[in-house]
Simulated assay, not measured.
Amino acid sequence: MRTRTNKKVWKKAVLWLVGIAAAAAIGMCVNIGKRGYDMYREAITEMSLEDKVNEIRSKEHYTVFADLPETYVDAVLSVEDHRFYGHIGIDPIAIARAVINDLKAGAFVEGGSTITQQLAKNLYFTQEKKMERKVAEVFMAFALEHKYSKNEILELYVNTIYFGNGYYCIKDASEGYFGKAPEDMTDYESTMLAGIPNAPSKYAPTVNPVLAARRQEQVVERLVECGMFTERRARETLAAEN
């Protein structure tokens, strides 16, 4: 009799503790969400999204989407956000995968951020890995998707990412690394450039040619996996430098 009573008490205690933990988790999520939204509102109050975008577009070396080589666009999408044209600013599949990998590693090893989220971060936020900053980034990504087309978002993205060597837009990078305008880049140059922003200090060809070449191979492999390159074209692209 006492054993049964003890089991009932234990079961109630466990359910009570689970309920407390769930309530605490929900409360924490709500709190983080509110702080993230406040961070987003503060950012656009200091400078509206329209003003921020106009500021980027007014830069001397700004490159429009029409001047981006198709291969470069495909390469960027394949390694950064291959569902870009199908999502609303966030990619639940990528986020779920990132959460699982982060939990396995016990640290932030994968972000799951879309190109739109990365643009939001480049325009307004720091690289600091805090949950409220990620929430603010999501609100900003939704705002970007509401106000601008996919091509405009991608155009803004390649004009605000860092390519190493002090190059903060695609035109500076293409001219600096290859001595030519973005629209004149070859498949070899496009795939090389697409891989650099993942880790500019490692993959810039002037810093470490070997790592840059390995990263380029990963980009070309992703193009094949995404059906954008044939195996033959992949081989020809990687051999083009020679």
Rank of each mutant, 00 (worst) to 15 (best):
A136Y: 00
V138D: 02
P92W: 01
E128T: 10
I88H: 06
Q117S: 04
K130C: 02
I90A: 13
Q117R: 03
K130R: 14
I88E: 10
A136W: 00
T116G: 13
I100L: 12
G111L: 02
I90K: 06
F139I: 07
G112R: 08
A105S: 09
Q127S: 15
A96R: 12
G89D: 01
V135R: 01
S113K: 03
A96S: 13
Y124L: 13
Q127N: 15
K134F: 00
K129I: 13
A105L: 12
G106T: 06
D91R: 01
E128H: 11
A136R: 00
A96G: 12
V138S: 00
R97G: 15
L103Q: 06
M140F: 03
A96L: 11
N122H: 11
A136K: 01
I115D: 01
L123Q: 07
V109A: 09
K130V: 07
A105P: 02
D102E: 09
G111T: 09
K130Y: 11
P92A: 12
T116H: 03
Q117T: 00
I93R: 13
A98S: 08
K121Y: 10
I88G: 10
S113R: 04
A94K: 13
T126R: 06
G89P: 00
A105W: 14
K121I: 10
I93F: 14
Q118D: 04
G106E: 06
A105E: 10
I90L: 04
N101A: 14
K134D: 03
A98I: 04
I95R: 03
K121M: 11
G111E: 03
G112N: 04
D91G: 02
E137F: 04
L103M: 15
T116Q: 05
E110A: 13
P92V: 07
I93T: 12
G89I: 00
Y124V: 08
V138T: 03
D102W: 06
E128A: 04
M140K: 02
G106P: 13
I115S: 01
V138I: 15
F125Y: 15
K134T: 03
E128D: 12
H87A: 04
M140R: 02
T116V: 08
F139N: 10
D102M: 09
E132D: 14
Y124W: 07
L123F: 14
Y124Q: 07
T116R: 02
I90R: 05
K129G: 00
A107T: 08
M131C: 09
R133P: 05
R97V: 11
E128Y: 10
T126S: 15
E137M: 12
Q118E: 08
A136G: 05
